[in-house]
Design a protein around this nucleic acid. Structure first.
Lengths: 313, 313
DNA sequence: TTCCCCGTTTGGATCGTTCCAATCGAGTTG
DNA sequence: CAACTCGATTGGAACGATCCAAACGGGGAA
């Protein structure tokens, strides 16, 4: 790999001048600039971002923590984050956490060691110390789609899960459902847990309690679309019909939810817009060299499709 | 951020000794080691991977190029790559290419500048110069799920698209289909194009030619499951029934293909295993400091589900 | 001719590690 | 008691950029 010194030598200038051509640190005479640029082209020079990062004490890398890319919500988020980051000259280091504290821990340590300029957390296990750990090291953190601002240093692009659950329950209640169940999520993560709580308080407001399938539930609310679609699969494999026997509601409105064979009733969340905003937050904070407190709560509309109907009889 | 020098100072040793404790370069007396470790714990020291990379001339970062994470095939691949890489101490820099040459170009440049130790390409535009560019810079490249070994330096974990297309066409032909169409893919990428060619030669072997929908095609083969599922959506929105009016076949066997509402006939490809092997290839090459030629071609079984049947009448 | 100015150019220090060669010092041997 | 050994420790030079203060040098003014 050619270095800047080699380029400088070939152009007959000092490394400082070559560096000035590269970064525009100082005025460089036109003729000199041309010679250096030619030398760069001839040697196929590519600046060493690692050396630059060391000197600059900034890596222009953003860490992205997601539970599972297989969920299209996170896949879209990752795509949006990456596009927005690239447009600003940042690269994205992606890490799956699977909402498992030890894995999250390792991932966090790796991001700190690699000196990322900020971390976007798309999902994390309940009660994880990670955001605080990062903030304490002065690394900006943006939470996407979840997060209460216990820490005033956090950037948050949130959704109103409570309001969304209220909409869902109100809709199902009006259809006549009285036995509703929440699909338990194995991943003990923030957003799933918050949705469960929102679901339960929406029920409580109507004097109801969650009712499992074995107690004859007629409607099921999942904490995201993938769970809802998997649930439909399970129900239909057992010979139950959706929505005739059981109504099913999801959350996220992933592309698959719109498919003619699925047509899932769900709540829309705009992963792409949230991803973009999170990058803005992180880059702003990184450039300012300090945390930028921010909180935005999206309003998520309920999208009624064909997996919900009145309960039978 | 604490540095090793600060740790050393606190422990009353030189930075060399502290470094030896960290990396085990030389023997360190037990008492000294303990003192240094204590100092590290007390200061919350995290080694600076950037400085280490600069000195080591190796970043322990792998680049991953995928067209689109929204496709579960690539999402699973990315997950597998990342898990395997993490287990070996590597981080993954992910970049979407969308099979667009300018974006691929930028992504490639970014990976070179960041001095990744190798690049895994999950998909790329037809005729892209990227693999050669990277190989010429002595960066190991592994191609996943596609790739002819024009370049003997490439690591390839391939699928047998031609054989798979032969299986699909033979199956549809035996069912009685004579008017088959291939779903055109907008992304001019390697694997899609190869599958189309495989499809056409399988037809030719039976004296057939591709027949579009407007010419009454009774079966459609898509270059991947997502396209097949999208096609089903389009057909069914137009009032056509799958498989009664049109049989549909996909490729990849993404989780969604198994869903009770989809039950897509498809070809299985093992993204997870391929991702793991690609990481092995790259890490082996990176550690050896040279390219490692390798080629493996998976045998992909045809999975018959419910989107295919005899043509009507 | 000499001095000064100002646009260019340059050497050197620095970022935080690693690693090699050199040094130190306690214990062993002749 | 001097010479030697060998385990433990250390200083300093990289790695490849950036950036500051200092040096350079050609042209205009006195």
């Amino acid at each position: 790999m050619t270095t800047l010194i080699e380029v400088a030598k070939r152009a007959g200038v000092s490394k400082s001048t070559a560096s000035n051509v590269l970064r525009g640190g100082a005025v460089v005479a036109d003729a000199t600039r041309k010679r250096v640029e030619r030398a760069m082209a001839e040697t196929g020079y590519h600046p060493n971002a690692i050396a630059r990062s060391l000197k600059a004490r900034a890596s222009t890398v953003i860490g992205l923590l997601v539970p599972d890319l297989t969920n299209p919500f996170y896949a879209e988020l990752a795509g949006a984050v990456e596009r927005a980051a690239n447009a600003l000259g940042y690269a994205v280091l992606t890490a799956h956490t699977e909402c498992s504290p030890p894995i999250e821990n390792d991932a966090g340590r790796a991001l700190i060691e690699r000196r990322v300029d900020g971390v976007i957390i798309g999902g994390i296990s309940l009660g994880s110390p990670m955001p605080k750990t990062l903030l304490d090291r002065n690394i900006p953190v943006a939470l996407v789609s979840f997060g209460e601002p216990e820490d005033p240093r956090l950037g948050i692009v949130d959704q109103n899960d409570h309001a969304a659950m209220e909409k869902i329950v109100a809709y199902l209640f009006d259809l006549g459902h009285r036995k509703l169940t929440f699909v338990p999520h194995d991943l003990r993560e923030h957003s799933g847990e918050r949705r469960r709580l929102g679901f339960e308080s929406a029920l409580a407001r109507r004097g109801l309690k969650p009712t499992g399938f074995n107690q004859g539930a007629t409607a099921a609310v999942a904490h995201n679309d993938m769970q809802a679609i998997a649930l439909m699969d399970r129900l239909e494999s057992q010979g139950l019909r959706v929505p005739h026997d059981v109504s099913v509601v999801g959350y996220d409105d992933v592309p698959m939810a719109r498919h003619s064979r699925i047509r899932l009733t769900t709540v829309r969340s705009d992963s792409i817009e949230m991803g973009r905003k999170a990058v803005d937050l992180i880059v702003t904070a990184a450039r300012a060299g300090r945390h930028v407190a921010y909180r935005e709560i999206a309003n998520n509309p309920l999208i009624i499709r064909s997996t919900t109907t009145r309960p039978k009889t």
